[in-house]
Design a protein around this nucleic acid. Sequence first.
RNA 1: UGGGAGAUCGUCCAACGGUAGGACUACGGACUCUGACUCCGUCAAUCCAGGUUCGAAUCCUGGUUUCCCAGCCA
Length: 566
Amino acid sequence: MSDTEHPESDNRPSNFIRNIIDVDLKNNKNDGQVVTRFPPEPNGYLHIGHAKSILLNFGIAEDYNGHCNLRFDDTNPHKENIEFVEAIKKDVEWLGCNWGDKVYFSSDYFDPLYDFAVQLIKKEKAYVCDLNAEEMREYRGTLIEAGKDSPFRNRTVTENLDLFARMKVGEFEDGSKVLRAKIDMASANINMRDPTLYRIRHGVIHHQTGAEWCLYPMYDFTHCISDALEGITHSICTLEFEDHRPLYDWFLDTLETESHPQQIEFSRLNLEHTITSKRKLTELVENGHVEGWDDPRMPTIAGLRRRGCTPAALREFIQRIGVTKSDNVIEMAVLEGCIRDDLNKNAPRRMAVLHPLKVIITNYPEDKEELLEAANHPQDESFGMRKLPFSRELYIDQEDFKEVPPKKYKRLIPGGEVRLRNSYVIRCDEVIKDSDGNVTELRCTYDVDTHGKKPEGRKVKGVIHWVSVRHAIEAEIRLYDRLFNHPTPDNSKDGKEYADHINPDSLRTLTHCYLEPTLSEATPGDQFQFEREGYYSLDLLCQAGNKPIYNRTVTLRDTWEKITKR
RNA sequence: UGGGAGAUCGUCCAACGGUAGGACUACGGACUCUGACUCCGUCAAUCCAGGUUCGAAUCCUGGUUUCCCAGCCA
């Protein structure tokens, strides 16, 4: 902690939702309690948009000494499964959120929900309707025309009670009957035009309740009641549910539940060059555009993790983008900046050559080798030192030698000198080429008096990385780029679909890369800065034969590239 | 006049009737055994038109424009 005046209040996010809560607290609403919830449907993996919601809800709970429930909104067993439940728990935990002892499920409330539905029927606020899906759509009207009442709208309480009970025990086929709320078919808000409460689904095995039910409640009915039963005070959701708030309130008012949570809507996260639609992410996986939900190119939390993004970086990102009700598209640079900030501070430095070019140090004895000390972090001594073997034959990167250098180039050129990082200054004496004129090898000499000191009588500006051929570890390195070429592939307004904007070069695999030998000690998930290249993470899952695989998390900022592009 | 919501630098977020501020990006410079990091600096915005007010991003009126809604999905 520094000596700032208010060390506590510095880092607290402030946004309109927290402002609302502050006012509620001042008025002693909810007895001063703050209880939130994160309610994912287990029908896919969580993505970066969910991270916003998770960190918002859990963050508020933490800062206000409240609690945030993890609740699976599992009312549609057809699409949901236990794999997704487990994946979601893993991701929320990885983000550093603590849901306490109990994981909640909407399906925990199937019994009370059924009783509430009965209550609604008794209040003449719900009825069993025999219209099929198509008929119901016709009766619903349009955005600008009122709907009309279902012919089944005026069934008696007794008849509705009987029918609903028989729906429950399985007397009717899928789709033949639904339970609907009786509200107003002429409402300007389509959600209020007698929304469906329950549908019949035979033969699906629910991951929590098995085959116990053939009747499943709908979102609008389930969500508000689940919130109320859990004593949620602030039910925070995304903007598309704004239209549903009157319905949320209608259920809780009509049923006179003990508590009446307040629904508050915020705008969802949109990130440039990616998509955050669960449906479309599912398609990317199922159509083989990516290798799975945790493909490092995916904006899923699992993908980000495998790519090497850290929870701290993601948290910082979510904090930086803020929370409002306005539509937004966040530049990828914001996320990358957060990742770089975190990894710059926390990733030890290593050397790795991605595009090897052999260098022979002709004045270095063949059988000699040295161990050169190198700092693991240039700004943080606590990272300690490591020893790098140096020998006669080295690899440097092809990019670090140019026979015909562009302006301002300060790496190796024929007859020129360059510093080998953590090592000596070498001079390029001879360029060896193959029959096609490609440079295949460099013959250099080293200045023995330049290790740990500046060369005498001249300045050497360039510093390049290297590895010793004899000691190097061969590795596969995967370079990831944006998954989509268009900044808003979802909504490109050029008549094309998101899939048309997939970047064919989103993955480049380099199979003959060479790493410094200390990397043999790395374990999956470890993150490093490969100096002058970027941040890389040892893959969590794969190995290419006996070669390790490193995923590029993000490049270093590259002003040289900017200069050369001009 | 179907309903609901939004509009502030290129991007994201502040300013809650009193000097339009921060972050990211971009650009320029310093430093450097990472063309990184760090540091310093520069550019850059209130959707429009009226009105109220000593004073308006903020309040009022009228426009413009963007997003969401017609699942037995959530």
